[in-house]
Design a protein around this nucleic acid. Structure first.
Lengths: 234, 234
DNA sequence: AGTTTTAATGGTAAATTTTACTGAAAATTA
DNA sequence: TAATTTTCAGTAAAATTTACCATTAAAACT
């Protein structure tokens, strides 16, 4: 919510706008959330999402991208607004409306040192500890959102490396939907969407036989969209 | 966005939060939007959504309900957050983040005099004039949202009178999805959802034969939800 | 070298859902 | 009482989803 390292001088009779990032990754078959141990008061030592005030001359979206880059070293991360959190009493110190934004990142791309420097930790989505303020609510809302959105927009690919196998993709969707999928039916369905490019390479890290690698063809997807196509993967 | 009748003294070096309401109704087979001719500077005489600053001691949601009640006389209207509009330069006068909220109202319930007193007008969704600031964008975003959401949540009923006929419901969905639906298939589908209660009354205002009236059973719907049911109406 | 093991694939048949379509019933108007 | 209009019921074809079996490719283990 509020990053006091920025040394703002807070005034009680003013409205502030902040943004908080709900950062998701995918690893070892489950969704992960990146959270931070606060190093400043208030809430020193407690777990929290990462966030910042929105500056007067800065777009809300810019603020979120700025925070995310400071923490992960990544630019142009997939990020979308979740919703605003606008209860008058949500922050006991002063009045602040926070705009929640969820980010999907490829968990191996980020700058590990940078992340550790900020006291961050990846938590399995089912083991997230208590967070400050309404941050647990934000996480739950974000999960509901991506579970819905993954059905009709290809956001899942933001969580995978550029090259991935069908079984990997399936494990991702199983983690998102929290249910097992039939591998043959999943393959049939996803390939029928016509947005995956099969490569000549195999990934042999997880199986003996090895599985073919694929790429998501964003350009193709956008073209199809213009002619009434709709992505659907449940 | 900003209601200057409230006589705020705006300061350039501060952040403000406002809320704007995208108010939808349904009448004569099409979706309508309630907009206002501004009676104060700036943008005097131009069309605009209705909105207000969010007060320091007020939830964002409360602010929206307050505005809506001032204008339509209605309390407890169905309203949900759309998204925030946070571009730094969106308002030329000062820095203001607006939280867009869309409301669905039963078009005959509102207080006509009150609405007229505020210089308001219902516009067909396809004939909305130029609005101030980014308000046209808000309307478009809200339309996309309800077109999506109507598929999986029973929000449509918020736009109809408590008692409605199946053909009425169908015309509503046709207006939302902008495509014709087969009446027999629509009826079959909607009745199979098990959330409509058939009444003994008929509505004869639109046809000779008269069509049976139905009610949406919210309680039933909520019960079904708890056991893995999902509403879907396309 | 051959057998076992394990995950990745290709395929097919049953079950379910969606789509397309015809016609009768109920009331009003002429 | 005939014509008109809108509601509403049922069924067959088409498409999609689901539930399975079988084969393949490569590594691991005799």
């Amino acid at each position: 919510m509020v990053n006091f390292t920025e040394n703002y001088y807070i005034q009680k009779d003013r409205m502030y706008v902040a943004t908080d990032c709900i950062i998701f990754g995918f690893d070892s078959g489950s969704l992960k959330l990146l959270i931070f141990k606060r190093r400043v008061k208030p809430f020193l030592g407690e777990w929290s999402l990462i966030g910042s005030f929105v500056k007067l001359n800065e777009d809300v979206e810019e603020a979120a991208q700025r925070v995310l880059e400071e923490i992960t070293g990544l630019k142009d991360v997939f990020m979308e607004e979740l919703k605003s959190y606008g209860k008058a009493d949500r922050d006991p110190g002063f009045r602040c409306v926070s705009i929640g934004q969820y980010a999907l990142i490829r968990i191996n791309d980020y700058d590990k040192e940078l992340v550790e420097k900020h006291g961050a930790h990846w938590y399995d989505i089912n083991e997230v500890p208590n967070l400050v303020l309404d941050h647990n609510q934000m996480v739950q809302d974000a999960l509901v959102r991506i579970r819905r959105k993954a059905r009709y927009k290809p956001i899942g690919f933001e969580l995978l490396p550029e090259k991935f196998t069908i079984p990997q993709l399936q494990r991702l969707y199983e983690a998102i939907y929290q249910k097992d999928l039939d591998s043959r039916n999943f393959r049939k369905k996803v390939l029928s969407l016509n947005v995956l490019l099969k490569l000549d390479e195999k990934d042999k890290s997880t199986s003996r036989r090895g599985a073919f690698l694929y790429k998501f063809e964003n350009k193709r997807y956008r073209e199809l969209l213009t002619s009434g196509y709709n992505f659907e993967l449940s």
